[in-house]
């Protein structure tokens, strides 16, 4: 079976680099499933969870937006930030979520930027959902 080489890179490091069977990514226009021999594509990603299927297993990662490039045998993801589920700092994500929520509640404060607050809330929630999902799966 044809395989797909996936590289997930951020400005700081290479997060993931494996041969896989399928990638499911949060595209800006909706979830996006990519199998080998996909047509060349370049798209913007939104914050969300990125699932990589490899040898019957699923690797889940949280990404906070970025770009996805697809070539027939390769997928390259330029992420703003990406973490494997195991790496997520839950306490930090919780704190970020709370901060964003407070700021949204207290809207009208000087320097309030609704778009940025919403974006940071979404980022924190993505991290939490991904971490939660993996934890639950491991317990089973």
């Amino acid at each position: 079976m044809a395989s797909l080489k996936v590289d997930i890179v951020t400005a700081e490091r290479v997060v993931y680099s494996e041969d896989v069977e399928a990638v499911i990514a949060p595209g800006i226009e909706g979830q996006l499933g990519i199998l080998p021999h996909h047509a060349p594509l370049m798209t913007i990603l939104q914050a969300g969870e990125l699932v990589v299927r490899r040898g019957g297993q699923e690797d889940i990662m949280a990404i906070t937006g970025g770009f996805l490039e697809v070539r027939p045998d390769r997928v390259i993801i330029l992420a703003d930030a990406a973490e494997r589920a195991e790496e997520i700092d839950i306490a930090r994500a919780e704190a970020a979520k709370k901060r964003a929520e407070e700021r949204i509640c207290a809207r009208g404060a000087p320097g309030f930027d609704p778009a940025r607050c919403e974006a940071s809330l979404r980022r924190a929630m993505t991290r939490l959902t991904v971490a939660e999902k993996v934890r639950r799966r491991r317990r089973r």
Binding site: A39, M42, T43, I44, E69
Partner: peptide
């Protein structure tokens, strides 16, 4: 030739 989503300029 890539497909650009949502569009080349946005990307």
């Amino acid at each position: 030739d890539y497909l650009y989503e949502p569009g080349a300029i946005t990307v």
